[in-house]
Simulated scan of single mutants.
Amino acid sequence: MRVMPRIKPDSGGTITFFLAHGAGRQMCRLATTFLTQKQAFSYLHKNRTEIERIARSRLASGELEDGVVVLSML
Rank of each mutant, 00 (worst) to 15 (best):
Met1Asp: 14
Met1Pro: 06
Arg2Glu: 14
Met4Gly: 08
Pro5Phe: 09
Lys8Ile: 03
Lys8Ala: 06
Pro9Tyr: 00
Ser11Ile: 13
Ser11Asn: 14
Gly13Arg: 00
Gly13Ser: 03
Thr14Met: 13
Thr14Tyr: 15
Ile15Gly: 00
Ile15Arg: 02
Thr16Glu: 04
Phe17Tyr: 02
Phe18Cys: 06
Phe18His: 15
Phe18Gly: 07
Leu19Cys: 06
Leu19Asn: 05
Ala20Ile: 03
His21Cys: 12
His21Ser: 12
Gly22Ser: 10
Gly22Met: 12
Gly24Ser: 11
Gly24Thr: 08
Gln26Pro: 05
Gln26Met: 11
Met27Trp: 08
Thr32Ser: 08
Thr33Val: 14
Thr33Arg: 13
Leu35Arg: 01
Leu35Thr: 01
Thr36Cys: 00
Lys38Cys: 09
Gln39Lys: 08
Ala40Phe: 02
Tyr43Arg: 08
His45Pro: 07
Asn47Lys: 10
Arg48Val: 07
Thr49Phe: 09
Glu50Phe: 12
Glu50Val: 11
Glu52Ile: 11
Ile54Val: 13
Ala55Gln: 03
Arg56Glu: 05
Ser57Leu: 06
Ser57Met: 09
Arg58His: 08
Ala60Gly: 14
Ala60Tyr: 08
Gly62Ser: 07
Gly62Gln: 07
Glu63Phe: 05
Leu64Asn: 06
Asp66Met: 12
Asp66Lys: 14
Gly67Ile: 03
Val69Gln: 01
Val70Asn: 07
Leu71Phe: 02
Met73Gln: 09
